[in-house]
């Protein structure tokens, strides 16, 4: 019986099953820095923006008025509200406070006598917030999303829901020029693998 020679060696040509998880080390001069803002409270809020009792009730809890203009956001400390559609918002609040905020919102809406045809849904476990910063972010987004993320079309505070590769995302530009992305938990592996691959030429650092 002749032995079969195996000339394969663990070199450049082969990828181990976990290759994609270990291929990228943390570059100190990375062009892309990813930081997950873990365990924030995410609340989906729906209501009638023309009902002033509703909007003032929400404002009394959040400390800021809901963004009524399309594709905008407002920020107040740890709380941020994204416009999602004319009667829907995403509220991202400090970790662990979402239950209290939800209760406060329900109480305020009832006390103000607002139309009770509203919905507040805790979706914290279904999605997460990821921040992308660095010199390569603009180019990374160019090849990851169909939306024009150029600074001339994407001012600070703007919120855009669009595609990210084959998944979806809600993006918001921050004052420091970095981008916050809300991604779904069920697509987080996909997102991360795409991010690793797409940021290979810039270097990826996980902060």
């Amino acid at each position: 019986m002749t032995s079969v020679s195996t000339n394969f060696s663990a070199g450049d040509m082969m990828e181990s099953p976990l290759h994609h998880h270990v291929a990228h080390t943390n570059h100190s001069d990375a062009g892309i820095v990813m930081k997950e803002d873990k365990f924030r409270g995410h609340l989906n809020l729906r209501g009638n923006p023309e009902d002033t009792a509703f909007t003032s009730a929400v404002e009394s809890v959040l400390g800021v008025a809901l963004p009524i203009t399309a594709n905008t956001s407002v920020r107040s400390g740890d709380t941020v509200a994204y416009w999602l559609c004319p009667n829907e918002w995403l509220l991202i609040v400090a970790s662990g406070t979402q239950g209290q905020v939800e209760a406060d919102l329900r109480l305020a809406v009832a006390n103000k006598g607002a139309d009770q045809h509203i919905a507040i849904t805790d979706i914290s476990s279904g999605q997460t917030l990821v921040n992308l910063s660095g010199s390569g972010v603009a180019e990374l987004l160019q090849k990851s999303t169909v939306y024009d993320c150029h600074v001339s079309n994407f001012p600070v505070g703007k919120v855009v829901q669009t595609t990210f590769a084959k998944t979806g995302t809600t993006m918001c530009k921050l004052e420091d020029g970095s981008m916050d992305l809300v991604i779904r938990r069920s697509f987080s592996d996909y997102f991360f693998l795409w991010l690793q691959d797409a940021s290979e030429e810039y270097g990826l650092q996980i902060a």
């Binding site: 399309a70 594709n71 559609c85 004319p86 169909v146 939306y147 669009t162 595609t163």
Partner: peptide, 11 residues
């Protein structure tokens, strides 16, 4: 007409 923006067909 809701986002008040022109977007790609892919969306």
């Amino acid at each position: 007409p809701y986002c008040e923006e022109t977007r790609e067909e892919e969306e």
